[in-house]
Simulated scan of single mutants.
Amino acid sequence: MRLSTRNQLDGTVLSVTRGEAMAVVRVELPGGSEITSSITRDAADDLGLATGSPVRVLIKSTEVALGVED
């Protein structure tokens, strides 16, 4: 699979919490950091996401927000 997205992180699914329309997917990255993604429930089902599934996290740089302490 070739993608234009440059921010790609391999990880392992820690959990998938399915709601009526959305699913929250927690992913462990190498080194122990975690990242969470909200996707449609249909997408989670279509991808067959389950605990232990290997995944690639794609981060669109225009959708990242940063904050700092005052």
Rank of each mutant, 00 (worst) to 15 (best):
L58P: 15
I35P: 05
P30T: 11
E28N: 02
R18S: 12
S4T: 02
V25Y: 11
L66Q: 03
R18Q: 11
T62L: 12
R2M: 00
V68Q: 08
T5I: 06
V16R: 10
S4C: 02
S33L: 03
V64D: 04
R18C: 10
G32T: 03
S61D: 02
S61P: 00
V25P: 11
V27K: 12
R2C: 00
V16T: 14
L9T: 04
L14H: 00
R56Q: 07
L47M: 04
S15R: 06
E20K: 14
G11C: 02
A44D: 11
E20Q: 14
S15V: 08
G32D: 01
I35W: 05
D70M: 09
G19W: 02
R2Y: 01
I59Y: 05
V68W: 06
T17D: 11
E63S: 14
A44H: 09
T17P: 02
A65G: 07
L47T: 01
V68D: 05
L14E: 05
R41S: 13
A44I: 10
A23C: 12
G48K: 13
I59V: 14
G52Y: 12
P54E: 09
D42T: 15
G52R: 12
T51Y: 07
K60Q: 14
I35S: 10
V13K: 03
T40V: 06
R6N: 00
L49V: 10
L66I: 12
E63W: 04
E28K: 08
V27N: 08
P30Y: 11
S38E: 08
A21D: 13
T5L: 06
R41W: 09
S53V: 04
G11W: 03
M1I: 08
E28P: 02
G31I: 15
D70N: 03
D46E: 11
L66H: 01
A43K: 01
T36C: 02
L58D: 15
E69N: 06
D70Y: 05
V13S: 01
V57N: 00
A44W: 09
A23D: 12
G52S: 11
R18F: 12
M22W: 08
A21K: 13
S4E: 04
A44E: 13
Q8M: 15
L66K: 00
I35K: 06
L9G: 02
D45Y: 02
K60R: 14
V16G: 14
P30I: 13
I35D: 01
P30G: 12
R18L: 10
R26L: 08
M22P: 08
E69H: 06
A50W: 00
D10C: 09
R2K: 04
R41P: 09
M22A: 15
M1G: 07
L9S: 02
M1T: 05
A21N: 14
E63R: 11
L9K: 02
V24F: 15
E34W: 05
M22R: 10
S33N: 06
R41F: 06
S61C: 08
G32Y: 00
S37I: 05
S4H: 01
V57H: 01
R2P: 00
E34I: 07
V68Y: 11
A21H: 14
L3W: 01
S4K: 00
